[in-house]
């Protein structure tokens, strides 16, 4: 709305960006390494966890969500939420199809 004339956007500087860059590269190395180790059941979970960690760094810092308004944060959460509904509710069908036949 009008009225708020203050410049609300924080400018994120190079230092943060460099730190995130290295964290992301580290995460990439880590996830490649992890995929070569046999962790059985945990392999995909770790791969997705690391990917999610990386994605969060990108969203929060490269995309400035950490410094943004509640509205932006809520928008991101809404997206993730709906995405999860699509996937999880669809999978409820696939996972349980073979359970006992009625």
């Amino acid at each position: 709305m009008s009225g708020q004339n203050k410049h609300a956007h924080t400018i994120v500087g190079p230092r943060v960006y460099v730190a995130i860059l290295f964290a992301l590269l580290l995460g990439t190395a880590l996830t490649v390494w992890a995929s070569y180790v046999d962790l059985g059941f945990w392999n995909p979970i770790i791969a997705l966890a690391i990917a999610t960690g990386k994605a969060m760094l990108v969203v929060l810092f490269f995309m400035h969500v950490w410094y943004s308004t509640k509205l932006t944060k809520l928008t991101v959460v809404a997206g993730v939420f709906t995405f999860m509904i699509l996937i999880s509710m669809t999978l409820t069908d696939y996972i349980s199809r073979a359970w006992g036949s009625w």
């Binding site: 509710m89 409820t92 069908d93 696939y94 996972i95 349980s96 199809r97 359970w99 009625w102």
Partner: peptide
């Protein structure tokens, strides 16, 4: 949404 698919062959639990 799956109420449109009740008889289509989805899982009974779903």
């Amino acid at each position: 949404w799956a109420h449109h698919m009740f008889i289509m062959g989805i899982s009974n639990y779903a």
